[in-house]
Design a protein around this nucleic acid. Structure first.
Ligand code: MN
Ligand code: MN
Ligand code: ZN
Ligand code: ZN
Lengths: 139, 139
DNA sequence: TCCTAACTTGGACTTTGTCTAAGTCAACAC
DNA sequence: GTGTTGACTTAGACAAAGTCCAAGTTAGGA
């Protein structure tokens, strides 16, 4: 995480208390928080931080490629700091739990040329859906 | 489409002018409209139809499995009447154009057991991203 | 230490969607 | 055809998620 702060400073970022706190909240490998969840946790550490700054900072981190935006359900976007390790998501249809998963094949390989319609295809996001162990048990 | 109306009547649906108009707007194979776009087109045919009814009707069609909800960008959900033919989506990163595409392999097959974490995995939605021919040309 | 462009803030505003109470009407019975 | 009634529709209030702005603050270089 401190290497993240280093990278950001090299990008010309001013290192403010607010940005540091947002970066700290996003620390950890398997976090998928909404902007308001990030804000709530940031407030625990820095009570005066505003919602606008959290949104601004998250947007900047996404621009810089340090954080991924994940929109899976038409509700609030989730912010994923695991941006340097390509992966996909597995989501429980009942409780909404999100897991990072790593498919064995390159998803792009499954899309034949005839199905590309002249697009320059550059990426694929996969959302696997199912029931998590807890929700399977609770039937 | 009239077979859709037949199926709905068999489900105990009252066949109102409003529902008929929403079904008509969603007719066609490759349509991916937002709720407000559906409302705008419905108003052309039935000026007094309300937003609430469009949302209600779309929700009912989704419940019945006649229409799919597609959330790709954290903005408004899109409604997809092509529900009886499994497919995935290819979206232009610049202009947002959406195409239906049909991958050659079952996406679930690419997720090894070791990556399922005890989930009962039942489906996968793939969003391919790239540049459409028009946006490639306009560089 | 001072200066200033960059950053932050609270609150207004927008977009997307949900909810409710009151009014309307499709479909069935007769 | 007429009457009845529960399902349906409506306008508008409300809520959640996100954007924008003018005014105030501050990190970091001079
Ligand atoms: Mn992730
Ligand atoms: Mn489609
Ligand atoms: Zn679950
Ligand atoms: Zn395009």
């Amino acid at each position: 995480m401190s290497d993240l702060l280093t990278r950001l400073r090299e990008q010309g970022w001013r290192l403010t208390a607010q940005r540091r706190v947002v970066a700290e909240v996003l620390d950890g490998e398997h976090v998928h928080l909404t902007a308001d969840e990030v804000h709530a946790r940031a407030v625990d550490r820095l009570p005066e931080i505003s919602r606008a700054t959290v949104y601004n900072t998250l947007g900047e981190l996404v621009q810089l490629g340090e954080v991924l935006e994940v929109s899976t359900d038409g509700r609030a976007k989730r912010y994923d700091p695991n941006a340097h390790h390509a992966h996909q998501h597995l989501i429980c249809s009942v409780c909404g739990t999100i897991r990072d998963v790593h498919p064995s094949a390159d998803p792009l390989a499954a899309l034949p040329d005839a199905e590309r319609f002249g697009f320059a295809v550059s990426g694929a996001e996969i959302t696997y859906r199912g029931l998590c162990p807890d929700c399977r048990a609770a039937t």
